[in-house]
Structure formats: structure tokens, C-alpha cells
Simulated assay, not measured.
Amino acid sequence: MNIFLLSVLFSLLFLFITLELIRRQKIAERYSLLWLILALIMLVSSFFPEWLNAASRLLHIYYAPSLLFFIGLIFSLLLIMHLTIVISKLQRQMTRMIQEVALLKAQKEGEEASYDRSSHRIG
């Protein structure tokens, strides 16, 4: 089997899986943008391998497949940065929620304590 045909088939499979995960709501649409971009880059570079050679020559990369590794590394770093931002935001929201729940709990316990003291005085 030709490596270019295998590359096209793998790229199409990757794109299909990504779209299917989005459709089944396993991946949120806003987080899936990087995966779709990667799938499209893979598909374009599979259909037009001469673009990869031209881009590698332009960037003075002597071995064209190493450009793919570089693109993969950049993608991985972008994905890690994106996930770090999401996790940081969720952690701040969770801390805020915990503080609000603690304040509501303390307020409720204070109201119950004042109600208990006032009911004991009357009875």
C-alpha cells in the first residue's frame, strides 16, 4: 500500500472520529477546534505532499517528515496550554464555590442557633 494513500486514509479516519466525538457530545465544540484544525492539516498534507517539501525547504528543514514532527510538537504545546488555561479557570471557579457554600453554611448555622435560643426563652 502506498504511504500517501495510507496517510489520506488515516487523516480521513481521524477527521471522522473527531466529528463523531463532537456529534456525540464527548468533546465540547469549543475545545474541539484544535482537533479539527489538526485533522485538516493532516488531510491537506496527505493530499499535497509537495507542499510539505516546499514548506520544509522554505524553513530550511532538510528532512521534510521532521516538519511533521515539529507541527505535532507545536500542536501538543498549544493543546497543553489550552488545557492548562481551562483547568486554571475551573479551579478558580471551584474555590469560589467552596467559599460561597462555606459562607452559606455558616449563615444557616447562625440563623438556626439564634432560632434555638429564642425558642428556648419563650418556652
Rank of each mutant, 00 (worst) to 15 (best):
residue 2 N to H: 15
residue 3 I to M: 06
residue 3 I to Q: 08
residue 6 L to I: 08
residue 12 L to F: 11
residue 13 L to W: 11
residue 16 F to C: 01
residue 17 I to R: 09
residue 18 T to E: 01
residue 20 E to N: 08
residue 21 L to N: 06
residue 23 R to N: 05
residue 25 Q to W: 06
residue 25 Q to F: 08
residue 25 Q to M: 02
residue 29 E to A: 01
residue 31 Y to C: 00
residue 32 S to V: 00
residue 36 L to G: 02
residue 38 L to T: 01
residue 39 A to W: 03
residue 43 L to Q: 09
residue 43 L to N: 08
residue 44 V to C: 11
residue 44 V to R: 13
residue 45 S to C: 11
residue 45 S to A: 13
residue 49 P to Y: 06
residue 50 E to A: 05
residue 50 E to V: 02
residue 51 W to S: 12
residue 52 L to T: 15
residue 52 L to G: 13
residue 55 A to E: 09
residue 55 A to V: 06
residue 58 L to Y: 09
residue 60 H to E: 11
residue 60 H to W: 13
residue 61 I to T: 02
residue 66 S to G: 00
residue 67 L to P: 03
residue 77 L to C: 04
residue 81 M to V: 07
residue 86 V to Y: 08
residue 88 S to G: 13
residue 88 S to I: 07
residue 89 K to H: 13
residue 90 L to F: 10
residue 90 L to T: 02
residue 91 Q to G: 00
residue 91 Q to W: 12
residue 93 Q to M: 08
residue 94 M to L: 14
residue 95 T to S: 12
residue 96 R to F: 15
residue 96 R to L: 15
residue 96 R to N: 14
residue 98 I to F: 07
residue 99 Q to W: 07
residue 100 E to S: 10
residue 102 A to H: 05
residue 102 A to W: 01
residue 103 L to R: 14
residue 103 L to Y: 12
residue 106 A to I: 04
residue 109 E to F: 11
residue 113 A to G: 04
residue 115 Y to Q: 12
residue 116 D to Q: 14
residue 117 R to E: 12
residue 122 I to S: 11
residue 123 G to D: 15
residue 123 G to F: 15
